[in-house]
Simulated assay, not measured.
Amino acid sequence: MTDHTTQAQDQVATPGPARHIPVALSTASVYPLSVHDGFAVAADLGYDGVEVLVTHNGDSQNAAALNRLAERYEQPILAIHAPTLLLTQQVWGSAWNKMQRSAQLAVDVGADVVVAHPPFRWQNDYAETFAQGVRDIADAFGVRIAVENMYPWRVRGREALAYLPHWDPVPQDYKDVTWDFSHGASAGASSLDAVKALGSRLRHIHLTDGNSPSTKDQHLIPGHGTQECVEVLQHISQNEFDGAVVAEISTRKAKGAGQREEWLAETLEFARVHLGQTLP
């Protein structure tokens, strides 16, 4: 374990909340390994569930396959991440089709949250009706579509408008929001201020970290960057937050499965400690 893990163990946990906030693992955290690997790692380490990122991988799009994995590894699927990333632009066709199919997949696997990125600037028609459109789809399928915070793109040192209406969901008319610490770092934002401003609209958290300011989306292990991860977890543990905290760190540079699991175990322990949960 790293020094950061030892520091987390040495700190006194905050008093435990009346309810248990689930700590889940995003399948993005084991990329480029498979969805199957994501479930296996989550089970091995003692996570409370899984968030599935829909990609070109067939199992990530298939409700029956996902339900088999959830049953085999006793890992409920808590969220579906819609294929709204640049690298998944070819998955499921048009923007609205992506949202509808993601909502249907969530229903079919028993998840109540769909994570979605805001529209890109070039998706004009989609962007114009996005806020109302995601509300309509959420209502129609009985799920929550939690729009994720992003960050400004910088070209030759200047900020470029990449998202419409904006990368920051706080002032937007979204009923539900996902907050990502790494994206907050890239944007130079205070995650604690944002979470407090969102209040009851905060539906979902991607637990990671980053150094601010940065031109990179780093997805570091929490506690390895400059974001207020500790303060946010302590804050949500003491208010009415009823969503999930999902580990979404980058393990692509891990030296083998052992180091990947070590990093993900450290992330889980960090969450448990600062949410005031009893460590196993």
Rank of each mutant, 00 (worst) to 15 (best):
A8N: 09
D10C: 08
V12I: 14
G16R: 15
P22N: 13
L25F: 11
T27A: 12
S34N: 12
V35E: 11
D37V: 15
G38P: 09
A42W: 11
A43I: 03
H56R: 14
N57K: 11
A63L: 03
L66E: 03
Q75F: 09
P76I: 04
L78A: 11
A79Y: 04
I80D: 00
H81K: 03
T84H: 01
L86W: 05
T88Q: 12
Q90M: 12
W96M: 01
R101Y: 05
R101I: 02
Q104V: 09
A106Y: 00
V107A: 05
G110T: 05
P118M: 05
P118I: 06
P118N: 09
P119K: 02
R121V: 15
D125H: 13
E128Q: 15
A131T: 05
R135M: 06
D136G: 00
F141N: 08
G142P: 01
G142L: 03
V147D: 06
G157V: 03
G157W: 05
E159F: 06
A160L: 14
Y163T: 05
Y163C: 00
L164Q: 07
P169A: 04
V170H: 08
K175T: 06
K175V: 01
D176S: 10
D176Y: 15
W179H: 11
A185F: 02
S191K: 01
S191H: 11
V195T: 08
V195I: 13
V195D: 04
S200D: 15
L202A: 05
R203I: 04
H204G: 02
L207P: 00
T208M: 03
N211L: 13
S214M: 04
T215C: 03
K216H: 14
D217H: 13
Q218S: 10
H219P: 08
P222M: 01
T226H: 10
Q227D: 01
I236C: 07
V245A: 07
V246S: 05
V246W: 07
K255H: 12
K255T: 12
K255R: 14
Q259W: 05
L264T: 11
T267Y: 01
E269P: 00
A271N: 06
V273W: 05
L275P: 09
T278F: 06
L279C: 08
